[in-house]
Write a protein that binds this DNA or RNA. Structure first.
Length: 496
RNA sequence: GGCCCCUUCGUCUAGCGGUUAGGACGUCGGCCUCUCACGCCGGUAACACGAGUUCGAUUCUCGUAGGGGUCACCA
């Protein structure tokens, strides 16, 4: 079996979105699984819309996701001469012809056909022009496009065995003589893409089902060019809740890979989620390490039906597909601390909360603290936001926490500073002695321990909920705890 | 409209003639408990419809309906 070579060919007209990322992921998985190569090719033939910014964004997105490529990025515009040469060759061999019909004429015919509810296809007006007629028109300086000549005689249908969908066929009659080169001399996507895939020796074309309609025409080009036709696998599309294809234009940042990076997603968690959007295993495994996923992946297990990206706009709890969040949470609380620590570090640095000794003398404290708080976090950003009180003194107080756990008990104004005294006096300061102190004090006061514990939590972390208060107190440290209980309690009782 | 593809819980899906139709996420209830989360236990919830084939259809065939894609001198 020949080498597996797949490609990801984004057109740089915007950011990398999750649909594109998923296509890249599937190609990447297939390449890795078969020890093949992934080629990155930037299809920048549309000079109008292509931007350097977009190219940078796409490359950055792929790198962040960890989808490394083996060749490229190649740029389609660098091979324009090849595309033109291919068109010329088709022309020379009589497999394509020049068409002098104007855009206006065609537009007119198209509209007429449409309004008459007829199917429109190019009528082949210029197909049978003699060499002399063609030459005469060229001599008059008439602009022309080059059309591929679809052979309507032979077999009748063009078909291929799609790795996802099975046998797909289309009759020649349904295929019009399509344009491969514009009147300004620029070759079109259909041609460029094939020429590039031939040059890059692509063995498997794994792309979205939105390309299904291109495939038959492209196969015709492969054949006309005498090239081997690659294998095809058309992935289902991802739609929104209203079943519309997701797009940058209509869905904005929610579909941008960069958005997930900003919101504190773990790159592999996103990959894992994307892999599951349209692909599964028989045993229903859902959490995969890189190696596991590469091993388990196969084109044949890709679902035929489109899948829905399940997100509700303006839902603060689920700012994206709940499943994506849940997978992210899973990794967040189970991944090795050695891998998580640097990621948290980045976020703390960005928030100005990082201190260098977290990497040095206080490394153990840092690791333990992150480990302590991670189980109720959803994203990396939470460490700097919900977890701010562990790393800074200027944390905010949740209104509900203050109302429910502080203001409700006027006496806490004196109890909590008293608790500070007792913590300060402890001969040993650890979660066990802290627990004994707090419970003991509650008993002495004849109150439920929860009142003291929850009050302490609200004052020292600003939050209604969190990990075991005794461990929190240990993590925050005696000095800071005592200080917070003494000085941050009373002000909460003062009206704004 | 033509052509092509698709159709199992709200969502992602398992299933490849005989299952109490399974799992995950969400949701609901419970346990745990200093709160919340984690974790654990349990509940809710699906084969689009109609014919056929068959002893038997979620599964095979054909229709119908619905959804999607595509019909450019965009990629």
């Amino acid at each position: 079996m020949s080498e597996v070579r797949v490609r990801f060919p984004p057109s740089p007209t915007g950011y990398l979105h999750i649909g594109g990322a998923r296509t890249a992921l599937y190609n990447w998985l297939y390449a890795r699984k078969h020890n093949g190569k992934l080629i990155l090719r930037i299809e920048d033939t549309d000079a109008e819309r292509s931007t350097q910014e977009s190219i940078d964004g796409i490359l950055k997105g792929l790198k962040w996701l960890g989808l490394n490529w083996d060749e490229g990025p190649y740029f389609q515009t660098a091979f324009t001469h090849e595309h033109k040469a291919a068109a010329q060759r088709l022309l020379d061999e009589g497999l394509a012809y020049k068409c002098f019909c104007t855009k206006e004429e065609l537009e007119h015919k198209r509209e007429a056909a449409l309004s008459a509810k007829r199917d429109y296809k190019y009528d082949g007006s210029c197909r049978n022009l003699t060499a002399e007629e063609t030459a005469a028109r060229e001599a008059r300086g008439l602009p022309c496009v080059i059309r591929f000549k679809v052979d309507r005689q032979a077999p009748g249908t063009v078909s291929f065995n799609d790795h996802v969908l099975g046998v797909i066929s289309r009759t020649y009659n349904d295929i019009e003589d399509f344009v491969i080169v514009r009147s300004n001399g620029k070759p079109l996507y259909l041609l460029c893409n094939v020429v590039d895939d031939i040059r890059d020796r692509i063995s498997h074309v794994i792309r979205g089902q939105d390309h299904l309609g291109n495939t038959a025409r492209q196969i015709l080009i492969y054949r006309a060019l005498g090239a081997r036709v690659p294998e095809f696998a058309h992935m289902p599309l991802t739609l929104d809740l209203k079943k519309a294809k997701i797009s940058k234009r209509s869905h904005g940042e929610i579909v941008a890979v960069q958005f997930y990076q900003q919101r504190g997603f773990l790159p592999w968690a996103l990959c894992n989620f994307l892999a599951l959007l349209g692909w599964s295993t028989t045993d229903n495994q859902e959490i995969f390490s890189r190696e596991e996923l590469i091993k388990a992946f196969s084109l044949e297990r890709i679902n035929k039906a489109n899948s829905i990206f399940n997100y509700q706009k303006d839902n603060p709890k689920f700012f994206t597909d709940p499943k994506a969040i849940s997978i992210n949470e899973h990794y967040l609380r189970t991944m090795p601390m050695a891998e998580l620590a640097p990621l948290v570090k980045e976020r703390l640095q960005a928030a100005g909360l990082w201190q260098d000794d977290y990497d040095g003398s206080r490394r153990e404290w840092f690791i333990n603290t992150v480990d302590l708080i991670r189980s109720r976090f959803h994203t990396l950003n939470d460490f700097a936001e919900m977890g701010r009180a562990y790393f800074a003194e200027d944390y905010e107080f949740e209104a509900r926490a203050v109302r429910k756990n502080v203001l409700k008990h006027e006496e806490l104004k004196t109890w909590l500073p008293a608790l500070a005294d007792s913590l300060e006096a402890l001969p040993e300061y650890n979660h066990e002695t802290i627990e004994a102190a707090m419970r003991g004090m509650a008993e002495d006061l004849g109150i439920k321990p929860g009142i003291l514990i929850n009050g302490a939590r609200a004052v020292t972390t600003g939050r209604l909920a969190g990990p075991s208060m005794f461990e929190v107190a240990e993590a925050i440290g005696r000095e800071r705890m005592v200080n917070r209980l003494r000085h941050k309690t009373a002000p909460l009782y003062e009206p704004d």
